[in-house]
């Protein structure tokens, strides 16, 4: 009696969907992400000579986002072809880079909110603190990147291109650990860590830092304060809209991990939800250049300058004209000036 036999859950519907949806979504994210982030990198590299801590974080975030979106074409091909055709080494590298830069981007979001908190809330006390952290900026960036590479090591180790048990002719690029490890426990641990550091930690940093910034701004007598608060609200709102749905799906996955007798229908629904929310979460890195760099008045003026110069090819003439503020002048300025200067990154 074959009706009492349990067959593997057939996810052909999901594959038919991902075959069309993901290549399109990933292509759009890749193009928009490259465009915005390359502009940011070019502006910083060519024109912005005074580099504050925030600038360095923004520069690094743009680099991380560029590397991240560069892996997406490979995934687009993977979903379109319904198999991994690039071999084991590229599988490890791609999943590794993908992990480094996703986590690095999230970490930098947390650091940026902390940097702004120090700049605005601790403005009066922070002359020396800011100067000191500026001196440490190379170290902090090095630490961010080294740790991001370390993060990816677990993904690198546990990624492999292999043939899946149901359809042995097709290679997939996926998680695989040795048979001695407890499969579900390891997966759960990795998933938990991703949720914690890819979502809850940056969220906590942002909520804490931006709440105190808003508290300070409410008290401040500054013409730009309403605009600054709008920008903060926008940053937090976009983070929540992009990241919450995907992380809720991950949370549901983590809760149901390793459970027996899950229904095939609900598995399919979760799969659809996962792919749609994941694309939304990835879209976040296309919005970062707009939210963090182009929203700033100073950055925009540098960018406009650069575009004009590229247009007219009067590159060298303008390069020497761009202002250079040393850290000494930074010290001597008044608190209120520094405060409005710090807020310039928020001003629309």
């Amino acid at each position: 009696d074959y009706n009492q036999l349990t067959v593997p859950c057939d996810k052909r519907e999901v594959r038919n969907f991902t075959k069309v949806f993901l290549p399109i979504a990933y292509s759009i994210i890749c193009i928009l992400g490259l465009l915005g982030n390359i502009f940011v990198v070019m502006t910083f590299a060519l024109y912005k000579k005074t580099k504050s801590m925030t600038d360095i974080f923004l520069f690094n975030m743009a680099i991380a986002d560029i590397l991240f979106v560069l892996t997406l074409p490979l995934w687009a091909v993977n979903y379109a072809a319904e198999k991994w055709i690039f071999g084991d080494f590229i599988c490890k590298i791609t999943r590794g880079i993908y992990a480094i830069n996703f986590n690095c981007g999230m970490l930098l979001l947390a650091f940026i909110s902390m940097d702004r908190y120090i700049a605005i809330v601790q403005a009066t006390k922070s002359f020396k603190l800011r100067a000191r952290t500026l001196a440490y900026n190379r170290l902090i960036c090095l630490v961010v990147w080294v740790s991001s590479i370390l993060i990816s090591s677990s993904t690198f180790i546990f990624s492999q291109s292999y043939s899946h048990s149901i359809n042995e002719t097709k290679e997939i690029c996926e998680h695989r650990s040795s048979k001695e490890t407890k499969g579900t426990t390891l997966k759960l641990l990795l998933l938990g860590m991703q949720l914690l550091f890819g979502f809850f930690v940056p969220l906590l940093f942002m909520v804490f830092c931006y709440a105190f910034i808003i508290k300070t701004l409410v008290k401040a007598q500054n013409s730009k304060r309403n605009k600054a608060m709008c920008v903060i609200a926008l940053i937090v709102f976009v983070f929540l809209v992009c990241q919450v749905p995907h992380n809720m799906v991950l949370l549901v996955t983590a809760i149901n991990m390793g459970e027996l007798n899950k229904s095939c229908d609900s598995e399919k629904k979760i799969a659809f939800a996962k792919y749609i929310t994941e694309a939304l979460a990835f879209f976040h890195c296309c919005l970062n250049p707009v939210l963090y760099a182009f929203i700033g008045v100073k950055f925009r003026s540098y960018f406009v300058n650069m575009m004009k110069n590229l247009w007219c090819l009067k590159y060298k003439k303008y390069k020497t004209q761009s202002s250079r503020i040393s850290s000494d002048t930074y010290h001597s300025r008044q608190t209120s000036e520094i405060m409005s200067d710090n807020m310039s990154s928020f001003t629309m």
């Binding site: 999943r95 370390l150 993060i151 677990s154 993904t155 997939i172 991703q194 991950l250 095939c264």
Partner: peptide
Amino acid sequence: GLLLLCLSGISEAQNNHDCCLSYSTV
């Protein structure tokens, strides 16, 4: 924080592969 981060990584599996979710009773 970074040290803790080292333990993390992207683990999530693709969800479009056919898998057994339960066992046959007969």
